[in-house]
Nucleic acid binder design. Structure first.
Length: 591
RNA sequence: GGAGCCGUGGUGUAGUCUGGUUAACAUGCCGGCCUGUCAAGCCGGAGAUCGCGGGUUCGACUCCCGUCGGCUCCGCCA
């Protein structure tokens, strides 16, 4: 480069008038008036207008006429103030322009496959395939800056609070429980595999045994499961662990971090302590362990009335030990029969028998199941549902957990469809006291709700042997607008309790020794009481920046099928590479 | 593993339900004109075998089957 940059485009202002500057960047656009040519020059900081005047600039003008979008330039010139009628209030630098005196064409460019500007409506395939062009768009640059600020603010806050950032291995061992692992074959140990970490869970607990006391790490985690709008196979966690802390203290630490991040990213003060719900209350009221509390439509339990009525779907659900619950969709009594049929089909696809509906009118309830209820029962039902004229009541009858789950999903679905979710709100909420175990009907055994290192609530410990499903844990999830953004727990720190839990999970002594022996051994050497939490950083940023997909806050994300459209990963490898790794493949789909 | 939606010049869309002449519109691109634009303007031009394969038909962008790619959701994700 012949010309050395002295300023960034977006930083030029009226203060620089008369100054000679050197700028560099990409050609955003060009307006050719014949003898007068305007070029918008863009760099990371913004845009500034360059002017080429045929009379004043002579030979330079001919070169300027050859400029095209995304050509790369360095220019030197004088900052001049624009005359009043040519000011551009839409541009941060619209007060000035650069009268170019010298130009260095650093590179040409092909015509880009989409517009390098905000709010483009282009196939995401193209954006991902040409991500380096997508990233040039101002809103993507903004995202990268925001992500950087989030990382910096996290490090600053946790450093000030006495946490040490310590990195842990990426090549580690596969452990049972949890998500499917990404495996890495070992060349030097034929037939042996590393696993990429699903989280640094075991290492951070070992760091506590190692006397670190306060640890954090911003690290990549890998889970080989199917993707969603808020799930990528590799994602970034803010991982934390503390020794000698109660759950209350850990929650306070996390709230302090969140308050700092809200200030740094949103410029908002976060009111702490944050509200909290027990898991059972969240399930009862919202049918979800990650309730979106930005809108109402809470679940109402009508099991008592359902048990009395003669509608078999309801009464049999109750006599079979299940529950009947409903939601009141305010003012939506205008749903057509077809719309209701579609909703029914939807909940059926989610795994329940059907959907009962009632429309509240001046003349009572309009519903196909009216004849199964007495007038008194309907009256009570209406009161229970807080029914008013024009409301739509929807009911599900099933096993209690299923009733709640289906209605919870329906609640969120309808809120989105009916646009009931307020924009621009940032609702944070703790969900506490998750059950320690859930029963896996397929595998016919208990599995950990959080993970196997989660401690039970002290008062529930006696139930471990008698009613394990009733045992509540010292786990906590942080929910942000109905999305889980962090989850953690107080850990088990005694080898005996840890063994009890592993046994309940159905691990044999052999497996236990092989897979977790090192942890149990560590616990025998004076493990301090400890606990921690891990944030999904990508999700956090997605919510803070109000974007719809986690892909929009990751520089190089993968598609729903886990492929990278830019690099073509995953891809085949040479037979030689496979041979080195002692691997042969079968039934190869892609060639 | 399952369900739904989408795929038409470089880009965004129309046309597809109800098969029938040169596949339309906007923008971008190329060329010309033009000294105050900033979504510049005016004139002209090039550019799509309609994701791919097969079937039905005299005839397929359109109907049917399959397949590939993308998105969303369920399962899965301690």
């Amino acid at each position: 480069m012949r010309l050395q940059r002295t300023y960034w485009c977006g930083n030029i202002s009226g203060k620089n008038i008369g100054e000679k500057v050197v700028l560099a960047g990409w050609v955003q656009g060009r307006r050719d008036h014949g003898g007068l040519l305007f070029v918008d020059l863009r760099d990371r900081s913004g845009l500034v207008q360059l002017v080429f005047d045929q009379e004043r600039h002579g030979s330079l003008f001919a070169a300027a006429e050859k400029l095209r979008s995304e050509y790369v330039l360095a220019v030197s010139g004088v900052v001049i103030g624009r005359s009043p009628e040519t000011l551009n209030p839409k541009l941060a630098t619209g007060e000035v322009e650069i009268s170019v005196e010298d130009m260095d064409l650093l590179n040409t460019a092909k015509v880009p496959p989409f517009y390098i500007e905000d709010n483009i409506d282009t196939d995401e395939n193209l954006r991902l395939r040409y991500r380096y062009l997508d990233l040039r768009r101002p809103e993507m640059q903004e995202m990268l800056k925001l992500r950087h600020r989030l990382l910096m603010a996290t490090r600053k806050c946790l450093d000030e609070r006495g946490f040490l950032e310590i990195d842990t291995p990426m090549l580690t061992r596969s452990t049972p429980e949890g998500a499917r692992d990404y495996l890495v074959p070992s060349r030097v140990s034929p037939g042996f595999f590393y696993a990429l970490p699903q989280s640094p869970q075991l290492f951070k607990q070992l760091l506590m045994v190692g006397g670190v006391e306060r640890y954090f790490q911003i690290t990549r985690c890998f889970r080989d499961e199917d993707l969603r709008a808020d799930r990528q196979p590799e994602f970034t966690q803010i991982d934390m662990e503390l020794s000698f802390c109660t759950r209350t203290e850990i929650i306070a630490e996390v709230e302090a971090l969140m308050a700092d991040l809200f200030q740094a990213i949103l410029g908002q003060k976060l009111d702490t302590p944050l509200p909290a719900l027990s898991h059972s209350e969240a399930m009862e009221r919202y049918g979800s362990d990650k309730p979106d509390t930005r809108f109402g439509m809470e679940l109402q339990d009508i099991s008592e009335i359902a048990g009395e009525c003669s509608f078999k779907v309801f009464s049999q659900a109750i006599s079979g030990g299940g529950a009947v619950k409903g939601i009141n969709v305010r003012g939506q009594g205008t749903f057509s029969r077809k719309e209701l049929d579609d909703l029914t089909a939807l909940v059926q696809s989610w795994g329940t028998g059907g959907l009962a509906w009632m429309i509240v009118t001046e003349d009572g309830f309009k519903t196909p199941i009216a004849k199964f209820f007495t007038a008194e029962q309907l009256d009570r039902l209406g009161k229970h549902m807080h029914a008013e004229n024009g409301d739509l009541l929807l009911f599900v009858a099933d096993k209690k957990e299923n009733t709640q789950k289906i209605l919870g999903q329906l609640r969120v679905h309808l809120a989105r469809q009916l646009d009931l979710v307020p924009e621009g709100k940032h609702h944070l909420l703790w969900v506490l006291d998750f059950p320690l175990f859930v029963y896996d009907h397929e595998e016919k055994r208990y599995t950990s709700n959080h993970h196997p290192f989660t401690a039970p609530r002290e008062e529930d410990i006696p139930m471990l042997q008698t009613e394990p499903l009733e045992v509540r844990s010292l786990a906590y999830d942080l929910i942000y607008n109905g999305v889980e953004i962090a989850g953690g727990s107080i850990r088990i720190h005694g080898g005996e309790m840890q063994e009890t839990v592993f046994r309940l999970l159905g691990l044999t002594q052999e497996e236990l020794d092989e897979k977790f022996g090192f942890l149990l051994e560590a616990f025998e050497y004076g493990a301090p009481p400890h606990g921690g939490i891990a944030f999904g950083l990508d999700r956090l940023l997605m919510l803070m920046s109000e974007r719809k997909s986690i892909r929009d806050v990751i520089a190089f994300p993968k598609t729903a099928a886990g492929t990278c459209l830019l690099t073509g990963a995953p891809a085949t490898v040479s037979p030689g590479q496979l041979k080195d790794l002692h691997i042969y493949t079968v039934n190869r789909k892609r060639s």
